[in-house]
Design a protein around this nucleic acid. Structure first.
Lengths: 154, 154
DNA sequence: CTTGAAAGATCTGTAAA
DNA sequence: TTTACAGATCTTTCAAG
């Protein structure tokens, strides 16, 4: 994992379909060398998948919300985690420090879809309390965080 | 934007480098037809970019945090937004309802990197108050939210 | 939307540093 | 162990129907 690898990740984060030739030209390497590095980045788990950045509004998801969840004391936490991980509306869910147990980022077609979601969490006895914070607008949203490509690291 | 388009987006979200041939086989279309649909999805803005899902731990970002920000009353909000959007550690930042103005999702190499970040926000007179919530573990994290595909396109 | 052909990219194997 | 090169294979693109 050297600077060239990080440059390659940066290029692919901007355009996952960039050709090996073009990437090679950008990092002064042959296409096969680039190919070999990408293969290693994938097998070593640095690159998890090649994916998409989409406009969820156009796809019909007008509502973005953060739902803070306090788990019920008798909730089966691993069952909750697999339920929330398989729920199509949940984009992210993290176990967090502070007053709440979990923070879930959810996307819904309309505001009215949030209540049934909370109701299901409650019906399954996961939920003690919750608080929903709506996102009004987004200043930035990027899938990949990279250090400025100036240093080495392992 | 029909069901076939949504299927194509689902396939590309799982593997942005899937070949037109394979996608076509999955949705019963010729490679050229798939190519044309993807082109339309890109130009219409549904697909914003082809990108990567990476393991930020391996890349040296061990800390994921949500920083709740109350803007200073005299802060230049659009200046704040462009500052936060260009900050490399900020993965997301949303204007939100509730007690706080903004919620920023940040990735840092270490816990110690959070304080200088907050200090800079304060030094620039953006920050009135803030609260930092750490993510201890992640139950799920997906870049694309899609409705369950329930029907065939033909 | 499909077909078919040309152009371009990728993959594999082999050799060299 | 990593990179370079060349031939074969696959993919993408374009024109025509």
């Amino acid at each position: 994992m050297d600077i060239t690898d990080k440059k390659i990740i940066g290029i692919l984060a901007n355009d996952a379909r960039a050709s090996l030739t073009d990437i090679g030209a950008a990092v002064d390497l042959s296409p096969s060398a680039v190919n070999e590095r990408i293969r290693r980045l994938v097998t070593s788990g640095v690159i998890r998948r090649f994916t998409l950045e989409v406009d969820h509004r156009i796809l019909g998801f007008d509502v973005l919300a953060f739902v803070w969840i306090a788990l019920a004391t008798d909730a089966d936490e691993s069952e909750f985690r697999s339920f929330i991980a398989s729920h199509p509306a949940v984009a992210e869910c993290h176990h967090v420090t502070g007053a709440w147990s979990y923070c879930a980022k959810v996307r819904m077609p309309t505001l009215g879809d949030i209540e049934p979601f909370l109701a299901e969490l409650k019906a399954r006895r996961y939920l003690a309390r919750s608080e929903t914070v709506l996102a009004l607008s987004t200043a930035t949203e990027r899938p990949v965080t990279l250090p400025p490509a100036t240093r080495r690291s392992g």
